[in-house]
Amino acid sequence: MTVLGYLANGLVFSSIIVLGSIGLSLVYSIADFANFAHGDTMTIGAYTALVTFGAVGGLGGAVLGLPYGFFLALVVGIAVAAIVAVGTEKLIYEPLDVDSIGLLITSIGIAFIYRAVIQIRFGSDFTRFGIQSLRPIETLLPYGVRVTLHDVAIVASAVVLVAGLHVLLQYTDLGRKMRAMADNPDLARVSGIRTKRVKLWTWVIGAGLAGAGGVFLGLFNQLSPRMGFNLLLVIFAAVILGGIGSVYGAMAGGFLIGMITQLTPFFSNVVEALPIGPGWLATLLENLITIEYANAIAFVIMVVVLLIRPNGIAGEGAT
């Protein structure tokens, strides 16, 4: 594959990571804890879409190789993920009398409960949406780019959702309230913002985007009860790289981490081609920069960012 091909793959994967990381970052800044159940919220979205799509079928026509029914399933997946998250907030997180570390530990329990319920219902095997997989787009093949129409649909939908979020945050009342609350919750409260309601909307938006990300992840790869949990750390890496609490940082971080993980085979080619000083260093790098370690590279980047720039690449000021 050419560089362009890797970049195209990276773009598709990044779209999914961006959808996940925005929600995680929003909840991190407004509900003020690291939500370990976020990955499993994505799984909920994916499996809801699987069930809905199985029930409604194609509904006639198709856009970008995807039947109308799939888009309906996407919407239902987003809605159910949001409802489940709001329900969890109301039932579990809100009545808790613990600090943010306690909430973090609780969210691990919630993550296990989500995953266990899905696994009891659907088993632990891999499944796919009942959509025929497409051949790569012919006109792009000469450039070494192997993307299908489905991949184009994933990127386009992600762009629409992210643009919608941008408009919401910048130009609506709710968005202003959310930004105010992320900045300083106490100040937001004394200026008359109903912080509880804003928090609920945060859960709706964050979990909804996660649900969409989960559906696309299922379309991009396949579905399994562990899909979300496996991606969770990559999403954390993206959020931390972008700077916790900054939605635009999360977008940038998600984009970069998605690209880096998909570009790993390209990097390994580069390392092999480069004349690196001592032989042992070259061998070490060649062994470590391989596709098996794509995620590990993302995690190491995450730790390095935490150490040298805890506010992320887009972060401003100390918190």
């Binding site: 691990i108 329990g109 993550a111 296990f112 409960i113 266990a116």
Partner: peptide, 9 residues
């Protein structure tokens, strides 16, 4: 997994 989750919560 479910039991562990319920115990944590």
């Amino acid at each position: 997994l479910l039991l562990i989750g319920v115990v944590i919560v």
